[in-house]
């Protein structure tokens, strides 16, 4: 009942949230900076150029009029022009998207594949060696700065051990698989190009591991907590009293219930993964959205930074809506009532 209410409220909130996204990004792009025209023009622009941009962006119009124009442009998918490349921001962002998507998805899968079993393990072996080890990994994951971990891994695997590949998504000798999804791992699987696949995976390994570390820490701590709680529930005790095998109790009775909060948190973790990709992509020479946005930051390419914030916000809202739907699929209590 309570959960169904949450879902209904979320859906009803969606228009409000989207309005919030637009308001916040509008505020950041128009109201917060001293002179948006100066920001768009760049620090070295002449006064005439700035005046021309003021004119073009309609910055002297009343705020409400500017806001409707902004919403209209967003609806048409118009995020302005990049200062660095003079191309449309939306086009630029989408061209860098597949590389970052591949990185984020890999980190996401790593988080689930490592975080959930480790969380369960720590809960089952509470206060014994596996628990202590898992908790150390978890607290280290959430405490180590992502950017620093990336540099350390690079130092160790590239410089000292010499087993990590160089920058980029593939070795320079490998031809990229024909584009289907833009994700090299998926594309090379589709055409069965094993050289490209292994090269892509090797290049993905370190950045994905770096990006996943913090989320793994969060997930281990969360799953451990909820698993410990679930294991004290009556239905688990009943199952145990009926002499069901331990394996079945854990996998069939305890785990699905322990994973309910985990789904929500994974949706929220997407925000950290996205910010993390801005921070670490350039460390590994990963040619994705993160590197592009970082270059935009260094060049004060304001339209690109804002466009990224807008797209990231919409993607985040959409992903969390998806999470709510998944929640419904996972939790029969919600499914029945919604």
């Amino acid at each position: 009942m309570r959960l169904a209410g949450v879902l209904v409220r979320r859906l009803a909130m969606l228009p409000l949230v989207l309005l919030g996204v637009v308001l916040v990004t509008f505020f950041i792009s128009r109201v917060a900076p001293g002179d948006p025209a100066q920001l768009v023009a760049g620090p070295r622009a002449s006064p005439e150029a700035v005046a021309e941009i003021r004119e073009r962006l309609n910055l002297d119009a009343p705020l409400l009029e500017q806001f409707t124009a902004y919403v209209g442009a967003l609806a048409r998918g118009d995020l302005g022009q990049s200062i660095m490349s003079d191309r449309p921001v939306a086009e630029e962002i989408f061209s860098y998207m597949p590389a970052t998507l591949e990185l984020m998805l890999s980190a996401f899968f790593l988080t689930v594949l490592v975080g959930v079993p480790l969380g369960v393990l720590t809960a089952l072996y509470r206060d014994r060696l596996p628990d202590i080890g898992g908790r150390v990994v978890a607290i280290a994951g959430i405490s180590i700065p992502t950017f620093w971990l990336g540099l350390l891994l690079l130092l160790l695997f590239y410089s000292v051990l010499g087993i990590a590949p160089g920058a980029g998504r593939l070795d320079s000798s490998v031809v990229a698989p024909p584009t289907q999804t833009g994700l090299y791992v998926v594309d090379s699987l589709i055409v069965g190009d094993w050289t490209a696949l292994s090269s892509a995976l090797r290049h993905l390994a370190l950045p994905a591991l770096t990006l996943a570390a913090a989320s793994v820490g969060v997930v281990v701590r969360l799953v451990r907590g909820s698993m410990i709680e679930v294991l004290t529930q009556d239905y688990v005790r009943t199952a145990r009293a009926f002499g069901l095998p331990k394996r079945q109790i854990i996998l069939q009775y305890a785990l699905p219930n322990a994973l309910v909060p985990f789904v929500t948190v994974m949706g929220l973790e997407l925000s950290s993964l996205l910010f993390g990709s801005v921070v670490i992509e350039s460390v590994f020479g990963w040619p994705g959205l993160g590197s592009f946005v970082l270059a935009a930051i260094l060049n004060l390419d304001f339209p690109v930074i804002m466009g990224f914030a807008v797209i990231a916000s919409f993607a985040f809202v959409a992903a969390n809506l998806l999470v709510d739907l998944l929640y419904m699929a996972l939790d029969p209590r919600v499914r029945g009532l919604a």
């Binding site: 909130m13 949230v17 919030g20 996204v21 916040v24 990004t25 950041i28 917060a32 997407l270 925000s271 950290s272 996205l274 910010f275 801005v278 930051i297 004060l300 304001f302 930074i305 804002m306 990224f308 914030a309 990231a312 916000s313 985040f316 809202v317 969390n320």
Partner: peptide
């Protein structure tokens, strides 16, 4: 509902 760190980054910029 906003991706906090990304928004903080844009706001700082």
């Amino acid at each position: 509902a906003l991706p906090g760190l990304v928004i903080a980054m844009a706001l700082t910029a």
